[in-house]
């Protein structure tokens, strides 16, 4: 989705999809603001619980999602130029990065639950599991869209590809990346 030199009149993908993106982003924003507020009420308890999180794991997941955003951009660029073979390859790589993110997150959850007794009852971890779990759910939806996209472009023998579906999928995946770019520093770094 390179920025063209001309202004386009419509939203990328479907206008109705943007209602979903912005609604979703606003729900996350409310959760993040609520977390910030309650953190101010119990700063020491939150800081102690935060120390159980692995910054390296969170950072690794950030780079994985940023890489997946790049491969998604390359996919869209190839599809715009009618290059189906590299588009298929980069869609598959994006799916692979999504799987890596899920694998790292599941590993992190299992480590946390084994390290912290009754982690689920600690207030910080309630927010942590809610925010990251909801985000993980979005990753799974994004993976579903990406697999549909791969199937869509794999069954096209010519370069006739529904670009609206491509843009809806790409924007959704970038939105998932965007949300993580805010969740990660808020939960792991501050």
């Amino acid at each position: 989705m390179n920025q063209p030199s001309t202004i386009r009149q419509s939203a990328p993908g479907e206008s109705s999809a943007w209602v979903l993106y912005l609604g979703d982003m606003s729900v996350f924003a409310l959760f993040l603001a609520t977390y910030s507020f309650y953190k101010q009420a119990s700063p020491d308890a939150f800081a102690e619980a935060q120390s159980f999180l692995s910054r390296n794991t969170g950072s690794l997941n950030t780079f994985v999602l940023l890489l997946s955003s790049l491969t998604m951009l390359i996919t869209v660029d190839n599809l715009k130029r009618g290059l189906l073979v590299p588009a298929r390859l980069f869609t598959a790589i994006t799916i692979l990065f999504g799987m890596v993110f899920i694998g790292i997150k599941v590993h992190e959850y299992s480590l946390l639950l084994s390290k912290v007794e009754e982690a689920i009852r600690v207030e910080f971890f309630t927010y942590y599991f809610m925010l990251t779990g909801l985000h993980l759910l979005h990753i799974l939806v994004g993976m579903g869209l990406l697999i549909s996209l791969l199937w869509h472009i794999s069954t096209r023998m010519s370069s006739v590809v529904d670009m609206r579906f491509v843009e809806v999928t790409a924007c959704y995946w970038h939105m998932v990346d965007l949300l993580w770019l805010i969740i990660f520093p808020l939960l792991y770094l501050t």
């Binding site: 989705m1 920025q3 063209p4 001309t6 202004i7 386009r8 009149q9 419509s10 939203a11 990328p12 993106y21 955003s69 998604m72 951009l73 843009e167 790409a170 924007c171 970038h174 939105m175 990346d177 965007l178 770019l181």
Partner: peptide, 12 residues
């Protein structure tokens, strides 16, 4: 991400 990756920058 919004402006450049999601294409919002290209919309008026």
């Amino acid at each position: 991400v919004l402006i450049h990756f999601m294409g919002v920058g290209a919309t008026g």
